[in-house]
Computed example of a mutant assay.
Amino acid sequence: MLWLLLLQVLASCLWLGHSEVVTSFESCPQFFYEETTPHEALTPQNAAWICQRYNNQYHFATLYDRNRRIPVYSAYIYEAACDEVTTPESWWFVEPQLITLFPKMKRESIILEQHLFTLEQIKESQAVVEDYSNLIGLVRGHLNPSGHHRSDDSKLATFTLTNIVPQDSSVNKGAWKKYEMATMAEKSKGCRTTYVITGAVPGNDYVAGGRVNKPSHIWSAACCVMGEEYMKAWAVIAENDKNEAQDLTLGELEERLTKFYGGQDITLFHDDCPRE
């Protein structure tokens, strides 16, 4: 019992003394082509820059909206499509770093069992397992899917609720899955490195009693490095209530996002990535 008390005291001290997270991706710039991040117009009012860390290694990067409790985007390096991973309902990770200076994702159930933080403390800045437990017509939609990674650690790292949005079940299992598993594999042939940024446009509806935003659209863009001087890029967008995914050029997606985000010119990748 003494060690539990000491852990609670330590967590409380960290909670009071350090309530901020980093304000850039300086610890994980490798997930962005030429270390160039998307335009700041995508940054929400109460943002968190998360270098997603599991087993002492960074696996991808996420810009997270703490007010809407959904990711704005996740950035990663695509690997040849592999089998997806499924996890039990209670297995999902949350991010203690949204509460205090603790850089590693941790399972929500373990945090609560070890009395590191209360559920109320976790819920203040992010979605929790119960927020996704009674969805109707919606599922947990990965922005960075486990099937785009080869190693077990990278696959498991995608199962953090900071990489998840409420996604229409029909598009998740239909057009979007086809894009993730078939279209990406086809388009990335010949690529030496494929940088991917997948995001969600905030919508007007909420789930979980108003806690978690339901995005109006899900989008993804890729910048493929094929050689020293040859590159290609592509993009896709889907409305979050229709089983359809529209193929776009990178430039077309950026134009679409510019309209969604109030007219500020949005760029997702370094200028070297072709827009047409």
Rank of each mutant, 00 (worst) to 15 (best):
Q30Y: 04
L63K: 01
N56A: 11
L112K: 09
T62A: 08
E95Q: 15
H115I: 10
R66M: 02
E108G: 03
H115G: 09
D131A: 01
Q114M: 08
H59D: 06
Y76L: 01
I50N: 10
V22Y: 03
E95V: 08
G17L: 15
S19W: 00
I70G: 05
F25C: 09
A47E: 02
L16R: 12
V94S: 00
T62S: 08
F93S: 01
N67C: 01
I99M: 13
F102R: 14
A75S: 09
A80M: 12
C51P: 08
T86R: 12
N55W: 05
G17C: 15
C28A: 11
W92F: 12
R53P: 05
N55T: 12
E108Y: 04
T118M: 08
H59T: 13
S125I: 00
M105F: 02
T23H: 12
F93C: 07
Y33A: 14
Y58K: 10
E130H: 03
E34W: 14
P88Y: 02
T118E: 00
E89V: 12
A80V: 09
N46I: 12
I111V: 12
R107T: 10
T100W: 07
Q30W: 11
L119A: 13
V85H: 08
I70Y: 00
F25H: 00
P88N: 08
Q45N: 03
F60P: 08
P44D: 10
S125L: 04
